[in-house]
Design a binder for these strands. Structure first.
Lengths: 339, 339
DNA sequence: CTGTTAGCGCTTTCAA
DNA sequence: TTGAAAGCGCTAACAG
């Protein structure tokens, strides 16, 4: 490995002078600068960021902990994070927890030991330990996509409650009364907030509590499949299903199809999150869209600001708007089903 | 920050003893070990990996450079990389080049400066510089998904040529003769290899050179759209389109639909790469599937082996098989179109 | 079994 | 404008 000392020797100057040339700091005569630069070129020297970081106490690296990069929502979010990070000269280490609090804690430890300058965290259900750890070590961090109850830290998320409310209002306007919600984990706020929005809309509509029901499973295709199955077993069966995320929607769709029901004739299906572009018929799922890319960007910007100047004193709770996109998976209630 | 010296002082031992406890190396009496461990707990000490890495000259970090994490194929691949890396105690920094050789080179520099132990690279078209750089600095690396001509290094990829051949043979068996290939960049081997497989199948079938044509654009939805448009302008128009990747297939599908053609009645459409699971009709695209997750895993394993024991002397060229999945987007040629 | 010394590659501090 | 010394937090090598 070629070090600053090698360059210094070749250029006939001290290490310090080389350091000054590399960092463009301090005064240096044109002549020595040129000599140093030539030595750098000839030797193909590149600085060792590790050593620099050890002194500097900044690594220009962020950690991104999410549940599963494979979920298109998080993929897009991750891309937003990397784009902004990269603009600021930061690198991003990514980590998949699969919703496991243990994995989350493990990654938080690893990242902290690696001295990342900040962490972007999509919190799992058992997050208090991780957050406490980061706070104790004063590692700046921003929560993404999900709140954590009773914890006052920076969060960038969508208005899940409102988005769900909008979506369910749309179903109500179509005449639906028996609407089932397919929740993810009952411990994740993006799941519970969406169910809460659903409840608000149902209650506002003056519906009997018996007519609505939330089936909590997990934010997976399998979870959606099972949630939809139990929803469809209810008698009288719901006329509409509200999937609280994209994976749930896919699983629910499969269950509905297996049950031999036609969407939207027999049943309406709506969902949080859009699907990635694909080949096939026109996208037909009525959804509430989240600005995943923008969430990644904003969260990274908030983190950058904290790293720069500490940012505002109070934790920021940035809530991005969702957008209702009505397509053909939701339709009016067919009267025969109402009997 | 709490350092090893703080722990040492509190436990009344030397830094070295603490180091030994942390690393479980050397002999230590039960008693001192207990004292040190207590001090560590009380202080909430965690080791600084940066300092350790500076000595060890190993960072337990890999770089993953791909074109766009947002492409489902690369998303899945990235997950495979992270899973294996994580099993081995490595972290992964991910980087998006968007097919830009400049970005690729920039990232290669950054990662090298950060002293990553190895790099996984999906090479862009202008890769020789990046590869030369990594070789000069003797940073172990493995190419992913794409070959680079005239460069002998570890590669993990699919048999693009054979996969394309299989796919086109399927079309030929259905009676198609005028088949157009929609290539990505003419500078990327996964694109050119697929077109080569297409050519081989066409030539073997004894078709006139005039009947087949490859339209090179880029591995994007827009590229697929434009490629399909120019393919469809050819007179007589092709009876089948072969999209060389998933994004191209999406764009091609849109162009076909805009042209008012029905798949597979008016035109067959087949593609490399599958689409992510979605809501909608049954997956209907006839495709050649690549084991993206497995590619990520294997490449990381190869890299791990290089880091462990140097691995085999000769560079490895690991070619994973593809799988033809026939669905409903390909059908027999309708005679009226053959007139 | 435990401690001391030296040094990884770099930059801060102070002096020249 | 340049350099020498010290030290970031850790561990290898040697000594005791």
């Amino acid at each position: 490995m070629i070090t600053i000392a090698d360059v210094a020797k070749r250029a006939g100057v001290s290490k310090m002078t080389v350091s000054r040339v590399i960092n463009g700091s301090g005064y240096i005569s044109q002549e020595t600068r040129a000599r140093v630069e030539q030595a750098i070129d000839e030797l193909g020297y590149i600085p060792n960021t590790l050593a620099r970081s050890l002194r500097y106490k900044r690594t220009k690296t962020l950690g991104l902990i999410l549940t599963d990069i494979t979920n298109p929502f998080f993929t897009t979010l991750a891309r937003g994070v990397e784009d902004i990070a990269s603009e600021h000269g930061f690198s991003v280490i990514f980590c998949n927890t699969d919703e496991s609090p243990e994995e989350e804690e493990r990654y938080v430890h690893v990242l902290t030991q690696k001295q990342v300058d900040g962490v972007l965290l999509v919190p799992t259900a058992g997050t208090p330990e991780s957050i406490a750890f980061l706070e104790n070590r004063s590692v700046p961090f921003v929560l993404l996509d999900r709140r954590v109850p009773d914890v006052y830290v920076d969060v960038v998320r969508c208005d899940s409650e409102q988005g769900a409310y909008d979506l369910v209002r749309h179903l109500l306007a179509l005449g639906h009364k028996r609407i089932a919600a397919l929740g993810g984990s009952a411990l994740i706020t993006s799941s519970t907030d969406r169910v809460a929005g659903y409840r608000r809309a149902m209650i506002e509509a003056g519906l009997e509590r018996e007519t609505f029901r939330a089936h909590f499973t997990s934010f997976t295709i399998e979870g959606g499949y099972q949630g939809a199955q139990s929803a469809l077993r209810v008698d009288p069966r719901p006329t509409a299903l509200f999937a609280t995320n994209n994976f749930i929607a896919i699983g629910a769709f499969r269950a509905v199809r297996e049950a031999g029901l036609i969407i939207p004739d027999d049943l309406s299906l709506v969902s949080f999150d859009d699907m990635p572009p694909a080949v096939g018929i026109e996208p037909f799922l009525t959804i509430v869209e989240q600005p995943a890319y923008e969430m990644g960007r904003r969260a990274t910007q908030v983190l950058m600001q904290r790293l720069d100047d500490g940012g505002p004193n109070r934790p920021q709770d940035i809530v991005l708007p969702t957008r209702l996109i009505i397509r053909s998976s939701s339709g009016p209630v067919v009267q025969s089903h109402e009997l």
